[in-house]
Design a protein around this nucleic acid. Structure first.
Lengths: 328, 328
DNA sequence: TCGTCACATGTTTACGTAAACATATGGCGC
DNA sequence: GCGCCATATGTTTACGTAAACATGTGACGA
């Protein structure tokens, strides 16, 4: 900055003002400074800027995995929301471990981020304390069934499970199998299952079994689980998959084996992934606003903290929609 | 740090040494310092650390999109490689625009990253200059057909196109259609097409047409394009898709419409995405080491810069494998 | 005419850390 | 017994920036 200042014939502070766009600057000086900066290839040092101004233009993003399209879409939303104000996401992956989440949060707080995004509402006490102590602004994403740290953007996972159950019951199905993955570490999936169970029971239906694979969710795993379910002697009416990837695998199994959907077996998934529209059979699922969830979370954190009224904890329900296909 | 030092009864510098693990520290003092830090909830400030040590523990990652599984897997590889040394990725998306890439690179350099990852070998002169001037270490990923800035990890896209063409020719196909997306902004896809064209021509085959959609690649788009191709009067022997998502869409179209593969139309894709194993028909494709590419790029940048011998520009060929399915 | 105030720039200082440069202790070889 | 060197700690300073606090214009209303 001193070099730029010398070349432009002004003080270092004036260069700082031009770069940050704060304070009064005559247009003549502004141009001189920009020209000087371009000539010597000046690149500002955000480490110094952050140190002095006690805040960096980084947003910490802590997600379970990138193996699930859901989170890559959330991340896209966040990234897009931030890019306008040249905030950048720094991120870490928890692989659905609370301990790992804590480590990541601690580590990322050392960057003095302007905000932090967490997945879901369940965090260890340690994590909550570290966040409280840092005073960083928080946005939680995907889930709104619980108590947020400050603001959560998402949908009611439990209600999604209920709506799906109700729809399947309305279609006449009574005996269900639930197919999940990740050893049940995905707490949102657990809440959907909870809602599903409740509605099924109230209507007098049965959940014959709950199969929870230890593998990460994938189409291949969904196909495997489905084959397993259908090879058993006691075939259920319908399978409720914890997400679309598993369900799509189920559809593939049936296509390959000539099992009729929904005649032989009905299915429902969750997420409303774009590729479902390309499949030969339209899956009944729940459409979730994943990108928008990320985008709104990003926008909240990108807002300069002037808005102190929003300090109170708040749940922002971005809703979901039952997408009726031909699999029920 | 001063507070921690007071509580531990040592100097600030000793605390610094404990935190960074550099220099001699007695185990007694180390424990005292850790205890004191834990008591007051000390979180180091990486902005200050980076400022003083002239280098941050961030790795800049500039990718075209997160909409393509390929790049999310590369990103996973990078993230995993970095997490061991608690380096963190900061990233930006170019949406396949060179100008956007330049802006992002400039912006990310202001974080004084320990390294930067770029997709592909083609970058604007501006971008190259900015990187040269910064002296930052660079890893380029996915492509090795060209001149790297320093080290590139990937595979020969052109050779992949050639191998695919040769395989299809061997299977007796002569009249091809190429189906791509992104308005051709994906330069790697362009190189594959180049290799494909060359091999087809040398063998006396024909590329009847090259259809390049302006949409991002997706299964839905692949199904749409395929429907378009097959509805035309002059049906080709085979379709070469620029990637698996488009090809899977093609398979879906044929499943839904009763078009026989490869009897009525043959197909090949590129990437070897995991979900292909779940499809009723096994797609012939090229298996690419995407995660490994990201991982090795991450590892290179994570190495402390002691290895000055590797300054020379270098291409690391991680290879690919033809995955023979039942679509040719 | 003078005070006021929006505009424009400059000077000094602090942000939290680690590099560079001391200093002190004690074990070990000769 | 003495010098040397590995070990262990302390003091001073600089990293690049922006906040805080000046200072200096000139237009405009009373």
């Amino acid at each position: 900055m001193d070099d730029v200042a010398d070349r432009a014939g002004v003080s270092q502070m004036t260069v700082s003002r031009v770069m940050s766009g704060k304070g009064y600057i005559s247009s003549k000086v502004r141009d001189q400074v920009h020209a000087a900066a371009a000539e010597i290839g000046y690149v500002q040092n955000r480490l110094a800027r952050g140190l002095r101004s006690e805040q960096s233009s980084l947003i910490a993003v802590v997600l379970p995995t990138l193996g699930n399209t859901v989170f890559t879409e959330v991340l896209r939303g966040i990234t897009d929301a931030l890019s306008a104000q040249s905030l950048r996401p720094v991120f870490g992956l928890t692989e659905y471990s609370e301990d790992r989440e804590y480590e990541l949060v601690r580590d990322l707080l050392s960057w003095r981020p302007a905000g932090i995004v967490l997945a879901g509402l369940e965090h260890s006490d340690q994590t909550r304390r570290a966040i409280d102590a840092s005073g960083v602004r928080v946005a939680e994403v995907m889930d709104i069934d619980g108590e947020p740290i400050s603001t959560a953007f998402g949908l009611s996972q439990k209600a999604a499970g209920q709506v799906t159950a109700q729809h399947m019951l309305d279609k006449g199905h009574r005996r269900f199998v639930y197919a999940g993955s990740q050893s049940g570490a995905d707490l949102r999936a657990g809440k959907r299952l909870e809602g599903f169970r409740q509605t099924v029971r109230e209507a007098g239906g049965t959940i014959v079994s709950e199969i929870i694979s230890s593998q990460p969710s994938s189409m291949v795993e969904g196909r495997r689980i489905t084959a397993e379910i259908l090879s058993g002697g006691d075939r259920p009416d319908a399978i409720y998959y914890s997400n679309d990837d598993l369900a799509a695998g189920g559809i593939m199994h049936c296509l390959a084996e000539g099992v009729r959907i929904p005649g032989d077996i009905a299915m429902a998934g969750f997420n409303g992934l774009p590729y479902l529209d390309a499949l030969p059979i339209q899956l009944t699922t729940i459409q979730t606003p994943r990108y928008d969830i990320g985008f709104q979370a990003g926008k909240l954190l990108a807002m300069q903290g002037e808005d102190r009224s929003s300090t109170a904890s708040q749940l922002v329900d971005l809703g979901f929609e039952l997408s009726v296909g031909r699999t029920c």
